[in-house]
Design a protein around this nucleic acid. Sequence first.
RNA 1: CGGGGCGUAGCUCAGCUUGGUAGAGCGCUCGGUUUGGGACCGAGAGGUCGCAGGUUCGAAUCCUGUCGCCCCGACCA
Length: 587
Amino acid sequence: MPTRLTNYFLKTLREDPSDAEVTSHRLLVRAGYIRRQAPGIFAWLPLGLRVKSKIEAIVRDEMTNAGAHEVHFPALLPKEPYEVTGRYVDYGDGMFRLNDRRGVGYVLAPTHEEVFTLLVKDLYSSYKDLPLSIYQIQDKYRDEARPRAGLLRGREFTMKDAYSFDYTDAGLDASYQAQRDAYERIFTRLGLEYVIVKADAGAMGGSKSEEFLHPTPVGEDTFVRSAGGYAANVEAFTTLVPDARPSEGLPAATVFDSPHTPTIQTLVDLANAEQPRDDGRAWVAGDTLKNVVLAVTQLDGTRELVVVGMPGDRDVDLKRAEVAFQPAEVEAANEDDFALHPGLVKGYIGPWSEGGAAVLGEKGSTGIRYLLDPRVVDGTEWITGANLHEKHVFGLVAGRDFVGDGWVEAANVKDGDPAPDGSGPIETARGMEIGHVFQLGRKYAEALGLKVLDENGKLVTVTMGSYGIGVTRILAIIAELNNDDKGLIWPAAVAPFDVYVVATGRDETVYAAAEQIVLDLEAAGNEVLFDDRPKVSPGVKFGDAELIGVPKIVIVGRGVADGVVEVWDRKSGDRSEAAVDAVVAAL
RNA sequence: CGGGGCGUAGCUCAGCUUGGUAGAGCGCUCGGUUUGGGACCGAGAGGUCGCAGGUUCGAAUCCUGUCGCCCCGACCA
């Protein structure tokens, strides 16, 4: 039974919807694939659903190849499992919560680690049952502070989430690798460029984690890569730590007057004017030690000040700092914070005071925790604040004159920074997350009590992995990538139909010929959308055909009198003629 | 949560400054003409102007409040 436009549920819009800004959103709404229901929540119309199903079919196929089995959980779940693992609190406002008529708490699941773990716990108790990989394709709910860009960041979105269960670390490695390989095949089949980067495990917990990022300037993630093959999310980037240097023989630190030095640059200028270096090289921002006061707020609300010392040519990257202090929130200290700590002389903060007493650090006079950038290794010399108004100090030596309470990755990453694995300088780029693979380890199994008996009859805690792909986000990215001024241009692998047949004119023989062509195409295994609308002008039909973006378009019109039809290739725009009875071969 | 913009017909918007019986284009219905690039003629249907209060003889228009949506930022897959 051909799919006919005369009874299909489709209405294209002549004008762009006013609430759609990004290309994918605009075109998917205009071409009749989706409709907005609420911010970040969309209804799927027949065309959209077909594309979504095509993507899901590829995902299912590769999950099967990876040995994973499909299951399906509810999206609506009791809150208890999430309370046990702590994520009911950790997720904060990001989780949709509701109560039933008796007041019992439920959540709309943002992700399903807990219930998968509990299901396996229910059924399995032996190492002989493992390894196991199961997955679902299910809608997820996250109450985003600001949904945006249509499908790219919604509050409801479809995700394939897979979970692996092993009782050995080696088993987890193998399960992880199988999913990782499957992801590579999926993105290749979808024609999506991707970069695999080291990722921060974030609130999910666990150890090893990699993200699949689609490189695009509009991406929300920043990642770095080196020519030598290093790739990481900027949040997971680790600094290459220089070797410590001997501090013997370095001159003693000296305090100097430094009025009117509100910025690092003015301090550097003053230093060059007052105290030029012996070797003739000018002082630069990287020779100064900048001490930034951060306020770190734990989940329970306790607020702690922390001073981070880093080279003056760096700034605090709050996202990296959040990772370093997670799950706490990090922000710049405010006036109230300073008021509580009169020992901090704003603009002249440093770890050392004249005479050598420590100011910062748990043993310093302020008692404020002092964390250092990894570049501040023992034996490095710095220009930094002297904790006196309008005074700085020269030649303060790390390890000799001051020590920190530890190290922290809170400084921003710059193009040209060395990769930590020695593979050369890195460059930064933007990307959109399309997949994420995690080795969760035993965090969830531990919290929820998932254990099995091993070969020796001993109870061991299961080790898990979690693997996600954003199905609807991928659909949006494909739309974002494949379009022109006329509309969408679907790659064959995910197109809602293979061929779009248009009958023009009002000649009965034309429609009869078109009917036959549709049947021929379907018999040859093509999915066909047939524009059989009788009272629509050709211009409208052509416009819709191009807007909808099916890869091949067959125009059946006046050429039928001569036994020919026109075949358009949507992507290249190429047009050729084909005999009415040989359309299948002409595609 | 901070900043900006916008809520008027199914869609895209004008009207608001300067208060006086609610408009256009597209879409939709009917009749006719037209049929290879978003046709034309004629006749229609369709709106508590986001909501509430206020000012006024009279409010889409002025005032106050409120709700919603979009964009930028913060945050997040």
